[in-house]
């Protein structure tokens, strides 16, 4: 494995961490949006309590991924930033509105009208952002970002819209949203106190789990014409069969665990499922960073930079990992969230 591969691998690790943590925070917004029934308010409060102490830390994974991309692979960053300018800008607007609406709701006073207004903005932004991030990933996987990067072709639509406004990227966007919502619902079964509220999220998790499967099927169907490289990797390569088996087993396992109310197991299986899918995407387009023409090795920064980045990552991890463990031990230590006062 080359230095560049190592940095690219770390990039996927950061994305993976973001999906499992920050992604679930977005998913929480989805459940806020569709909160319903007699425990509507309790559902929303649970989401807010679960996200509150951790969302800023979770969000940094995305920043780390961006920084790794532009430090380790500057031409790839430049190309993506041009070709996917519109969906990324949209995702940014969503990120800004989501984060600030969440903070404003928490600190804006307890009046119901205020809560609802910020809550609505928070929830809608949580819905849009994952779709756009997924669209961007789908566009990369589809290979459409390939040669276009510099925007020298003809026409605005060809260069800046057609790259991502296509069935496959949109299907990936939908899939991403389903995954985030699924993760959130599964995590929330563990945050909720025993009883009705937990059952609410169990039902939601089961539904979302099925939705993930449907969206995955949809994406795979449109991948035929839309993203031949990824499809080839996921179906044709020699690791395809064990990979598909593994993903299938954890997917069924997650649903089974939810069904039988083994929530810790469900959480582990759901996280494994989503992670496997992410690594499957990464593996299928290896050795390309931006298929079909920009390989990891071609886009990589000079070796000194890569080496320094890896050293910094190692040192950083020595501080970061214990701190993160500490944070999650304090706020997610399996204890009932209802004890948290939303301060």
């Amino acid at each position: 494995m080359s230095l560049a591969d190592a940095v690219a691998g770390t990039l996927v690790v950061a994305l993976n961490a973001y999906v499992l943590s920050g992604g679930a925070d977005f998913g929480g917004g989805v459940w806020d949006l569709v909160a319903s029934g007699p425990r509507k308010r309790a559902q929303r409060d649970l989401v807010a309590q679960a996200i509150g102490p951790v969302w800023e830390a979770n969000h940094v994974w995305l920043i780390l991924a961006v920084v790794l991309l532009f430090t380790g692979f500057p031409p790839a960053f430049a190309r993506l930033a041009v070709a996917l300018n519109l969906p990324l800008t949209g995702a940014l607007v969503g990120i800004v509105l989501r984060g600030s609406a969440f903070a404003f709701r928490g600190y804006g006073g307890d009046r119901d009208a205020v809560q609802r207004r910020w809550g609505r903005l928070f929830a809608v932004a949580s819905l849009i952002t994952p779709v756009l991030l997924g669209v961007a990933v789908g566009a990369v996987a589809s290979g459409a970002v390939g040669d276009e990067g510099r925007g020298t072709g003809d026409g605005f639509v060809t260069n800046y819209v057609a790259t991502w406004l296509a069935p496959f990227p949109l299907a990936v966007g939908l899939f991403t949203l389903c995954c985030f919502a699924f993760l959130a619902a599964v995590y929330l079964t563990l945050e909720a106190p025993e009883g009705a509220l937990r059952e609410d999220f169990r039902r939601r998790a089961l539904l979302a789990g099925v939705a993930v499967g449907v969206a995955a099927g949809l994406a795979l169907i449109v991948a035929g014409p839309g993203a031949p490289l990824v499809r080839g990797g996921l179906v044709g390569s020699d690791w395809a069969l064990p990979f598909q088996l593994g993903t299938g087993i954890v997917a069924v396992g997650a649903l089974g665990a939810l069904w039988t109310r083994r929530y810790r197991l469900a959480r582990a299986a759901a996280a494994a499922q989503v992670s496997l899918i992410l690594w499957g995407w990464a593996g299928s387009q290896y050795p390309y960073l931006v298929p079909p023409d920009l390989a990891i090795a071609d886009a990589a920064a000079p070796a000194v930079t890569l080496r320094l980045v890896l050293i910094a990552l190692g040192l950083g991890a020595a501080v970061l990992v214990p701190s993160l463990v500490y944070l999650f031990r304090i706020f997610k230590g399996g204890r009932q969230a209802s004890a948290v006062s939303h301060q």
Partner: peptide, 14 residues
């Protein structure tokens, strides 16, 4: 960023 990423990515990573 294409020009500078590899040079000043370091402080951004830190």
């Amino acid at each position: 960023m294409r020009f500078a990423g590899a040079i000043i990515g370091m402080p951004f990573s830190l």
